[in-house]
């Protein structure tokens, strides 16, 4: 009987080792350890043995059963792991295939530039003022020290609708309207918007374009305040190491009037194609608000002074992003627009 037991054990261990998968191993378990298996049979047949042999034999059977069970469990762990591995392998995907696209749109490049400027000035305490695009000659010209027949009106050939109504040629009428509305109180505003001039559309001209202007009025506002403000703007928009320089210029609504150049952001001032070899790039026009403009809007120009500045988001976008043709901003080619998606910070 003992020999029979040993033979059984050897046979079971062989079968365990031979089991190729979990199912075969489970079959082995049922075959050898199940209630109808040979080991159970052996235990049942122990009754036939003499009583003194029974404990010894019982212990022996238990040892064999333990050994078979342990070996089987160990084998089971291995086979289960193999089974999982096979399953995982069969589930492998091609991770180079494209993801399910999330549709994203983005702002127009001019909006991007305008909002960046707006946000900078908002952080310095400015409000955003807007006004009509169809404007009275009075606000567009007269209130800005440009009476009828003024030679500087030639600078901006306009689209008139009637003799007194026109498409605004700049966003400055918003300044005039704000001053009138504020009735002599201090002002700190940014005025963005569309403007129109009689120009034939080509790579550098557009009959419709955008402007963004700023106006500050208060007690003892000085030209140095203008310079400081523009310097902050230049650094924020074009990089911290930008320098600015002011050059004398002329606008009827400011006196003194200046143009602001920034040191070239591409070459840093040594000269390149962006700055036309000068090291400087013209960015905006500015000046101290002309006393006539203040007086016309009901301000006491002896007590309150101010500065104003204005620039073209198209020009800034063209410089910043290297856009070569102003018409791109109005053609809405998806291949153009969708390039202004990603962040720059």
């Amino acid at each position: 009987m003992e020999a029979q037991l040993q033979a059984l054990k050897t046979e079971a261990l062989e079968k365990i080792a031979a089991a190729a998968n979990v199912k075969e191993l489970n079959d082995v378990r049922v075959a050898y350890l199940g209630k109808k298996g040979p080991i159970t049979d052996l235990l049942k047949s122990m009754g036939k043995l003499p009583a003194e042999e029974r404990p010894k034999m019982g212990a022996l059977v238990n040892v064999v059963r333990e050994e078979v069970t342990t070996t089987l469990e160990e084998r089971m762990v291995i086979l289960e792991e193999e089974a999982i591995n096979i399953k995982l392998q069969s589930e492998t995907i091609d991770i180079t295939l494209p993801g399910r696209p999330v549709r994203t749109g983005n702002p127009h490049p001019l909006t991007r530039v305008i909002e960046e400027i707006e946000d900078l000035f908002i952080s310095m305490g400015y409000e955003i003022a807007e006004g009509p695009e169809v404007e009275k000659d009075y606000y567009n010209f007269e209130a800005l020290n440009l009476p009828k027949g003024h030679p500087a009106r030639d600078m901006q050939d306009s689209f008139y609708i009637t003799e007194d109504i026109l498409l605004r040629t700049h966003t400055s009428p918003v300044q005039a309207r704000t001053m009138e509305a504020k009735g002599g109180e201090p002002i700190k505003i940014i005025c963005p918007g569309k403007v129109y001039r009689r120009d034939n559309d080509d790579a550098t001209h557009s009959h419709q374009f955008t402007q963004i202007e700023g106006l500050v009025i208060g007690e003892d506002i000085r030209m140095s305040d203008l310079k400081g403000t523009l310097s902050v703007f230049a650094k924020k928009m074009f990089g911290n190491d930008r320098e600015i320089r002011l050059r004398p210029s002329f606008f009827p609504f400011t006196e003194p009037s200046v143009e602001m150049d920034i040191s070239c952001f591409k070459c840093g001032g040594t000269g390149c194609n962006v700055c036309k070899k000068t090291g400087w790039i013209e960015i905006l026009g500015a000046g101290m608000v002309h006393p006539n403009v203040l007086e016309m809007a009901g301000y006491d120009s002896k007590r309150l002074t101010g500065f104003a500045f204005g620039m073209g988001p198209e020009r800034i976008a063209m410089l910043k992003y290297g856009v070569e043709d102003i018409r791109h901003f109005y053609t809405n080619d998806v291949r153009f627009l969708s390039q202004f998606q990603r962040t720059e910070v």
Binding site: I122, G125, E127, K188, I221, S224, K227, G228, T229
Partner: peptide, 14 residues
């Protein structure tokens, strides 16, 4: 010309 900032009443912009 030095660079200064306007000494105006501090108001939040927005």
């Amino acid at each position: 010309i030095p660079a200064t900032l306007p000494e105006t009443e501090a108001r939040p912009g927005g």
